[in-house]
Simulated scan of single mutants.
Amino acid sequence: MPLQPIDPASDTRVEHRTSLVNGYTYHYLYGEPASGDYKATVFLIHGWPDCSAGWRYQIPLLLEKGFRVVAPDLMGFGGTDAPKVPPNDISLYGFKRASDDIAGLAKIIGAESIILGGHDWGGAVVWRAALWHPELITHVFSVCTPYIPPSKDYISTEDLVKGPLPQFGYQLQLASGEVEKSINDEQSIRQFLKGLYGGKGPNGEAAITPERGIQFENLPVLGDSKLLNGKMLDYYVQEYNRHGIHSTLNWYRSRKANWEQELALIEQDKKIISIPTLFVQATFDTYLKPEMSKNMEGFMPNLTRGEVEASHWALTQTPVEVNAIIEKWLEGQGLGKRSSSSL
């Protein structure tokens, strides 16, 4: 029988916990196998506009296979703090800060080592965390997000859009400050979330295009999404109502701060991730297109590849296929033999 996804509002398999990490409060979903014994700890890092519940189909698999699971809300999302910028520095929404906070949270829960998985922004975070904290992370996997090594040259989002990645045009809009002017109450947040997860209007109207970003005029007419609806949509709306959308968009404003901090990685010649890695490509991802991952082998000597026929929302669109790839990879690493008892 397929494992049932976590219901973050009321599910006995996970706890909602909060911890003070490097001066800010983080909310996270925390779960242990039913036996209370676990062989390793897996951290799952979400992207935008997700939250920790974005991993709701993967958490049950990992618990059932004997792992302890921690799925935090990133800075600015859900129950985690959302410090304002300014007066705070934008680097609070950067890769190094996220990496340091993952390490801090691991220490709080007593994990000397962790397996780290990510999707979307979370995928970018976990690759960087493997560079910043190699002593902590034993294995790392990413769904949809390829590894791009640190660079000594700064390339702005504008230059990426004009050059190799025109599909990143939406990132310019999200960073501009215009989005939160229109998506600023419960109803507009609800329509925005419906649309981002695939809800369409009566004439096929869409909420977002990669090149242009959010199509505000279409939001009022959008119908339900197959991937995010009912109680789960209500939960996401509730989580977004805590801080609004502005703080989550700070992740699109931190590119230069990330580059500045990563010059230290360049100086230390830290580009190679030698630990076992897994990359799961979504073949129909129009944002993180398959060709973006073509050079990863040169930086990852222990890379395993998998792919699913899915859009950017592979975690929830094709959860059985994604889980099967993760499960096979973990078992290939000598981890995660399925327990005899079922949850």
Rank of each mutant, 00 (worst) to 15 (best):
P2E: 14
P2F: 13
L3C: 09
P5S: 13
D7N: 15
D7V: 08
D11C: 12
H16S: 15
T25I: 13
H27Y: 15
S35A: 08
D37Y: 07
T41E: 07
L44E: 04
I45T: 11
W48Q: 05
S52I: 03
G54S: 11
W55P: 01
E64K: 13
L74P: 06
G79Y: 08
G79P: 08
T80G: 07
K84R: 14
P87W: 03
N88S: 14
I90L: 08
Y93C: 02
F95A: 06
A106P: 00
K107H: 11
I109T: 02
G110M: 06
G118D: 05
G123Q: 12
V126W: 11
L136T: 10
I137E: 10
T138K: 15
T145C: 10
I148F: 13
Y154I: 08
S156E: 01
T157M: 06
V161T: 10
Q167G: 07
Q173M: 14
L174S: 06
A175H: 07
E178N: 09
E178R: 10
E178Y: 06
E178D: 12
V179D: 01
S182D: 14
Q191H: 15
Q191K: 15
F192H: 10
L193S: 05
G199P: 10
G201P: 04
G204P: 04
E205C: 05
A206T: 13
A206S: 11
R212S: 05
G213Q: 01
I214G: 00
Q215E: 02
G223Y: 01
G223L: 04
D224I: 00
S225T: 06
L227W: 06
D234Y: 09
Y235N: 11
V237D: 12
I245H: 11
H246T: 15
L249W: 13
Y252L: 12
R255K: 14
N258W: 03
E260M: 14
Q261N: 15
A264F: 08
I266A: 00
D269T: 10
S274E: 14
K289W: 02
K289P: 00
E291G: 01
K294Y: 07
T304E: 08
R305C: 01
G306M: 03
S311W: 00
S311T: 13
S311M: 02
H312S: 10
A314Q: 03
T316W: 03
V322R: 02
V322N: 01
N323K: 01
K328S: 13
W329Y: 11
Q333G: 06
L335Y: 14
L335C: 04
S339Q: 15
L343G: 06
